[in-house]
Design a protein around this nucleic acid. Structure first.
Lengths: 229, 229
DNA sequence: ACCTGAACACCGTTCAAGT
DNA sequence: ACCTGAACACCGTTCAAGT
């Protein structure tokens, strides 16, 4: 049925296997079959080569994933951010989320200290700059960035994996069982939220929460005077 | 050297293999060798049985991990929280972090909707209650809980995995390379932080950030009057 | 230099058979 | 009911050999 070397997307037979062609093939697998299907062996099969041939062009899987991030972030458009520093800080924080949300394989590289450098350096810059213009010192801005980064990671990770859990919904969720046996005396708040819990946690309140968090990180600080009308 | 059936910790030879003995053996592997070593096969070896024997007592690995969480959280002491609702909210948020920080295999179950129900239901109750007493509606309290939960997950996940990355420090970190080639004109904030970056991100500022985040989530709200002096 | 073949040291899980 | 043996369908990576 299918010829041994498919013609879709750029993996031509005679092409001499480069980092670029590897990246292209990997992105294709990612888009067509999802992040869980992307393995060195699967990728080798896609390129009709031995798994080990890959290791001549990338050091290991981790490096490959960072290459994928870099490749996708190169082509991304950089939106214009608001002038007002407070608005800009919020917009940058949202962008951090949006940029990283593009990578379904985030799970495996989230903790890499290299991820931000490769994927969203300019967002980082914008965020730090806005924070400083809001009145934070550079060190405080770095801490604020760190807090927003942690929050964003949590949001993304929980969203991507709980979507996976929803897909395999065979399990009757231990939560429901536990919630059902709770005494309202010992757990008044949890029990009164119990049935609404799935609906409440499913709603995407990222933007709202981010507003509050940014507010808290800035404290009562006013932007530097005279920079904007 | 070592007898086939070690006598440490409770895995006796004649014992008929129960959920409890499985959990005990799993916790032992976790403590002695770390979360990455905990596999169904390794666990079976520890108990001197076939991997498949395990599946007679637990549905799958995910269920086993939740059993481990439940087992550890059963024995935990519940500290007394401050009376002042604002202080209590902050203390509960810190507890959420501390409780979950106990589980090195968090990575694999973080996204499970069952995790909180099994591990930290009372912390959740305390957090929601404190938020309501701070003046939030129950729905707002649930959203605040959600935001704190996301933030906490991010902190824990990044910490546990970046520690792993530091251990295998062979790689010269792509971040350093990228940072070195940045032009100060295009990235003034990032470049001026560059050398301090590792030190700044290594510092544990969880408590400080949490204060700010809680502050932001509460907004200007005052606690319910007359409940506390 | 670039690639292959075979192997190492693993995974979680299913299925059929044994006691 | 409880457990084993063999297998399925995978992983990332190393090492020695081929061209």
């Amino acid at each position: 049925m299918k010829p041994r070397n498919g013609r879709r997307g750029g993996a031509r037979r005679a092409a001499p296997l480069s980092q670029e062609s590897i990246v292209v093939a990997a992105l294709r697998i990612l888009d067509d079959e999802g992040p869980r299907q992307l393995s060195m062996r699967r990728l080798a099969k896609e390129l009709s080569i031995t798994p080990m041939a890959l290791y001549h062009h990338v050091r290991d899987k981790h490096e490959l994933l960072l290459l994928l991030v870099a490749s996708r972030s190169r082509g991304a458009v950089r939106p214009v951010l608001p002038d007002d520093p407070r608005e800009r800080l919020l917009a940058a924080a949202e962008l951090l989320h949006d940029v990283l949300a593009q990578y379904p394989f985030l799970r495996e590289i989230l903790a890499s200290p290299d991820l931000l450098a490769v994927a969203a350096l300019w967002v980082m810059e914008a965020l730090l700059d806005a924070a400083v213009e809001c009145g934070l010192t550079l060190e405080e801005a770095a801490q604020a960035h760190q807090a927003i980064w942690h929050y964003t990671v949590g949001v993304l990770l929980i969203r991507t994996t709980s979507r996976r859990h929803h897909a395999e919904l065979t399990r009757p969720t231990q939560r429901e069982q536990v919630f059902a046996t709770l005494s309202p005396e010992a757990f008044p708040r949890v029990t009164s939220l119990a049935d609404r819990w799935p609906a409440l946690t499913a709603r995407d309140t990222h933007r709202r929460a981010l507003e509050d968090i940014v507010e808290g990180l800035l404290g009562g600080r006013r932007p530097h005077p005279g920079e904007h009308a």
